[in-house]
Nucleic acid binder design. Sequence first.
DNA 1: CTGTTAGCGCCTTCAG
DNA 2: CTGAAGGCGCTAACAG
Lengths: 338, 338
Amino acid sequence: MTKPKQVTIVEVAEAAGVSIATVSNVLNRGGIRSSKETIRKVELAAEQLGYRRNTMAAGLSRNKTFEIGLIIPALTSYYGTLAEHLQIEAHNAGYHLSVFSSGGFDPEIERRHLEVLLQRRVDGLICHGLAMGFETTRSIVNSGTPLVMINGWNWPADIATGAVNLGFAGACRDSVKVLAERGCEAICYIGSKRAKVIDEQRLLGFHAGMTQFGSGIKHEIVDAMGLDVESYLNGLMQRHAQPIGIVAFDDHVALRVLSAANKLHIDIPNRLKLIGINNEYIAKESYPGISSWDIPYQDQALMAISKLLHKFADKADSGEDREIEVPLTFIERQTTKF
Amino acid sequence: MTKPKQVTIVEVAEAAGVSIATVSNVLNRGGIRSSKETIRKVELAAEQLGYRRNTMAAGLSRNKTFEIGLIIPALTSYYGTLAEHLQIEAHNAGYHLSVFSSGGFDPEIERRHLEVLLQRRVDGLICHGLAMGFETTRSIVNSGTPLVMINGWNWPADIATGAVNLGFAGACRDSVKVLAERGCEAICYIGSKRAKVIDEQRLLGFHAGMTQFGSGIKHEIVDAMGLDVESYLNGLMQRHAQPIGIVAFDDHVALRVLSAANKLHIDIPNRLKLIGINNEYIAKESYPGISSWDIPYQDQALMAISKLLHKFADKADSGEDREIEVPLTFIERQTTKF
DNA sequence: CTGTTAGCGCCTTCAG
DNA sequence: CTGAAGGCGCTAACAG
């Protein structure tokens, strides 16, 4: 099937009895103003012929695409929701967001998508904490395309224009605080190493919390992957005095813990207290409800887009706020109530 | 920040001491073959200068973009996962998938994204059961761009090249069968009207199941939105003899039911049996585990992409299989076990 | 094999 | 306010 030829500006011009330049003018507003009459003629012709502007041609000639590329590890839960918000904010700013998933932190896929996006000459890039590492990233994004990171800590300024990060560390620190205040005798963090940097931040916060609020309280750290939650919980209950507190990597992990506890008839929250992260619907809809940290999606999205626009406008880097931290909000439910 | 000028084919040609046509040839293979020496020179030059092909220019000149647009209602759960699989299959076929969310069946956003995609001159389109309706869709997609539907039933051939649909109806029919066989005295479907066509199909199957397997069994239908599950369950238990069976719209809804049942200490599966759809991790990780229907993501993705490629190749429509139905697989867990 | 030469569809000075 | 003309970067015949 040969692609049927689409109607072009030329045909519209003929139909309207004006030059192509005039058509271009009225169809892209903002520019030079034309006589009412001309505008009417052109718009009518365009309408009737079913004219649709060719983005490639436009982009080519004006060296600007109004497209922003987004690379995230997946299209589910937190990532998917974030992408939706970014898409909305991008739209509000007159841009258009193309979303790509790197299939769970796969550096090779990341690279591929980045390459494609750069070949498309997107105006800007938003990436979620790349798995690729600084050097590789730098060698690819040396083109001067602005890049803002989502949840990317300590990226050199020559690679990333900036970053807007969630306060995972703070959330985990405060989770420890809550659990300590509620009288937990031991506190455990169930992480997820394959989430890389995201996990590191949580761990950082967890340790900070233990140092700050956990004097005299035992703690341990395990990874969710391949963990037999049931027997782990059993062990915990035997090894430590109760109640025991658990900080889960996210609500998914929290659900696993909750289910195991229910199965073992462990009294929640009296003998076991649990906190998740992300505040997904499962936290709200499970029984008992899981205390969790809510994510300010819109803020994060808005800030990321703003940073990009800022850069497009060639504003001088405002120095200090290259790396923005957005705090999460604690939503308390039954798993931590007294 | 003015976009820094990128290196073009011309500069590579100069550096390599050949013509631009030659550069184009060696850099895009497949075409004409060149001498080893030339290839080396060109590739070296391109490498050193950091040349990156400009997709817009290429697309413009060859009237083919190798891009496929995807519009789905959201970027989470089923939709997000499907998108990931589609992205992979598209890649395997040498295409590139741009994903857009219509923010939960919003016809206006659908329209906007469609328009953008068409302006980009994508080679093909994949849409998840558009909320727009036939007429509106037809008026937009009259450009001859192939469109295949995902979960779109009865779309006219002049709009959609084809469709690959999940067997929701069959799954719901068989859910009824399972529940009836397990001795349920009453069976209830908790739907989700806002999911439109997806809900309709389930309902269709539910009714078929009741007719076929449910003689003498009571049944009722409610909508999940705004439903107070707890009191609904209470009412159910009073109105009907037990056990009672519930077919939930999806695993999310099923989780709500499960939690309410747990809270009310309703014995699952002896007094209440429950089946979800999608087989998400919550079905597997909740307690008790929720019986659910697994989705053949890869098959569906592969078929959708194949249909498009088929169309690109200008193959005659193979008539019969315009609308493909992909069956789901029942995964039985504790909520329906005896 | 390699180079020349037209476009692809649109935007943008610059004259009229 | 409108039209003519020269690109944007690349590909696709054709010649050589």
